[in-house]
Design a protein around this nucleic acid. Structure first.
Lengths: 197, 197
DNA sequence: GTCTATACGCAGATAGAC
DNA sequence: GTCTATCTGCGTATAGAC
């Protein structure tokens, strides 16, 4: 069902491409640029990928398929909605931090995917959002969360989390841990919280 | 200092281009496509704009320069930080709603701008974010806002607001007014609020 | 698996008439 | 201000040797 994990040369190409796509924009990057970054010639890339778009697709999958398979299970673990949401926020931010350039590409270049690939990526994103909404609703049912509308809260939470990739720079004032602790508090403690701190 | 307002044919071209760029992605759209949408031939566009990138720049300015000039003054109006922030949230969402396709383009296609134009747009965005952070800090000083870090709260707020363009569809369950009321509550009442409702 | 060489289509931009 | 006609360069992708 899901794509095999990337290994060896393919993984190398995808990593290099993500970095360059994120910096210069997908359209401005040539196959020769990607090839140069891994020390081969442009034509050799076609031994590993059928097209430039296939490389972009692999980049996008690494930040949509992976979180669905690795982060979402936290929502099925034992614990209250409050605890599960806090675990999700932490894991989500830590994952984005490890794949920041890939995520930047996925945020900005979805339009360059083929219709088929775009649909796959969109499905992953929609499902993730749906699961977030479901935990919010679960917390509303237990009385832990005091928000009036789970849909709106889920949009707010996902936008906050994903926005991270756009502004975080490891070399500035804030550390990853600062953001994780701060966002767990903002999201679980304040945005959703019932006021009982 | 600021660009003259768009009028007549130029405005028509920018509006049509924004719609098509938002739907198909800047790179996938040809000058001939933009021209067709306003009922002229591709070459005729060059009477109005020097290049395709200049059209994109005009689109981006309409959702960065405009909010800075029209929405930010609300932060200088009389009233408490709570009141001023609530006014900003409403005005921001209403502005985005009126320029949704332009904003989608600005969110996704910044990489296609020239370095000079990109710098101008980035400056507008940074300044807006800075002003939001300053109101948050002002509310912290008066004790109205109970967040521990103004920077983090400002990122959260801006990402929530701007994310709106990505998911709002006028023909779905939520109306613009639903979102405005809901987000004023989430941001001013809950995220920032001191608990006194 | 990587190379050299090249095909070739597309899209941005120009020239110049009306 | 808009047109027709055209140039031109660039970048994906292929062919085929090593």
């Amino acid at each position: 069902m899901s794509a095999p994990p990337l290994t060896g040369r393919r993984a190398e190409i995808v990593a290099a491409a993500a970095r360059i796509f994120a910096r210069d924009g997908y359209a401005a990057v040539g196959m020769r640029d990607v090839a140069e970054a891994v020390g081969i010639r442009g034509a050799s890339l076609y031994h590993h990928f059928a097209s430039k778009e296939e490389i972009l697709y692999a980049v996008c999958l690494s930040v949509t398929q992976e979180p669905n398979e690795q982060t979402l299970p936290l929502l099925d673990a034992p614990g209250t909605p409050t605890q599960r949401m806090a675990a999700l926020v932490r894991a989500h931010l830590e994952h984005l931090h490890g794949r920041q350039v890939e995520h930047l590409v996925a945020l900005h270049e979805l339009a360059a995917l083929s219709a088929e690939h775009r649909a796959v990526v969109d499905d992953y994103r929609r499902y993730y959002q749906r699961r977030v909404r479901d935990v919010v609703a679960a917390g509303m049912a237990t009385g832990e969360f005091a928000v009036p509308d789970a849909r709106l809260a889920a949009f707010a939470i996902c936008d906050m989390l994903n926005g991270f990739s756009n502004w975080f720079h490891a070399d500035r004032e804030l550390t990853l841990e600062d953001v994780v602790v701060g966002y767990v508090d903002l999201i679980v403690g304040r945005l959703l919280g019932s006021g009982v701190r």
